[in-house]
Design a protein around this nucleic acid. Structure first.
Lengths: 90, 90
DNA sequence: TTCTTGCGCTACTAAATAAGTAGCGATATA
DNA sequence: TATATCGCTACTTATTTAGTAGCGCAAGAA
C-alpha cells in the first residue's frame, strides 16, 4: 500500500490530525507539532498537497474531502491509543 | 498521541501489517518489506516488542492481542487507500 | 565427524531525512 | 515610517535509514 509511505513518513499523520478540527497557518502547525522545523514542514505541505489531502485556503491549511475521509477511518485510533497506553503502564 | 511516534516511524506500520495473516521469520519480514536492512529491522523488532505489539514465538514473530487490535482499527485503511489511489489517478 | 545451509543478528559505512537556526520579502497594522 | 507577523528559503548539524559483509548457532546430509 502506497499509503504506508505517506503515513509512515514522520509528521504527516500528525499534521493531518491537527487539521481535523480547524484550519491552521504555517506557524500554527509548527506550534502544534512541538516546533517542527520549517524546512520539513514545507516539504510535508507539498507532499500532502500533491496527495490531495490538504489544500491552501484563506484561513490557512485545511483538509480536503479525501483528507477528512482519511481522518474518519483513523478515528478509532484515538480510543485504541489510550487503551494501549493504559496497557503499557501495567 | 504517542502512537504517532510509533506508527510514524518508517516500517513499523508495514511490519505489523505483514504479520496480520501469519507469523514471519526475521528474513521473512525482510523479504515482504522489499529487503529492508537488517539493522533497521532489528531495531524495529525491539521497538514493537517493547510496545507489546509483537512477540517472538516458535513460528516466528507474531502479533500480540494488542497488535491485533491495532490492525483491526486500521483495517478500514485498506479500503480508504484504494479509493484514494483511484482519486489520485484522475 | 565434517560439510553445508539457513537462521537471527551485529558491525560497519554511505546515503537520505529531520532538526535547528537565521533571515528574506511580502503584507498588515500603528 | 516603524513594527510585527506571516510563509517560506537557505544553510549546517544531527539522526535515521540503506546497504553490505559476515559471525555464531542449529539442523540436516554425507
Amino acid at each position: 500500500m502506497a499509503a504506508f509511505d505517506l503515513l509512515g513518513t514522520k509528521w504527516n499523520m500528525r499534521i493531518l490530525w491537527e487539521l481535523r478540527s480547524k484550519p491552521l497557518s504555517f506557524r500554527g502547525i509548527q506550534n502544534q507539532c512541538n516546533g517542527m522545523s520549517p524546512s520539513v514542514l514545507n516539504s510535508r505541505i507539498k507532499q500532502l498537497s500533491e496527495a490531495r489531502l490538504i489544500y491552501t485556503s484563506e484561513e490557512g491549511y485545511q483538509l480536503t474531502e479525501l483528507g477528512y475521509s482519511l481522518m474518519q477511518t483513523l478515528d478509532p485510533l484515538r480510543d485504541w491509543a489510550t487503551s494501549w497506553e493504559d496497557a503499557l503502564q501495567q
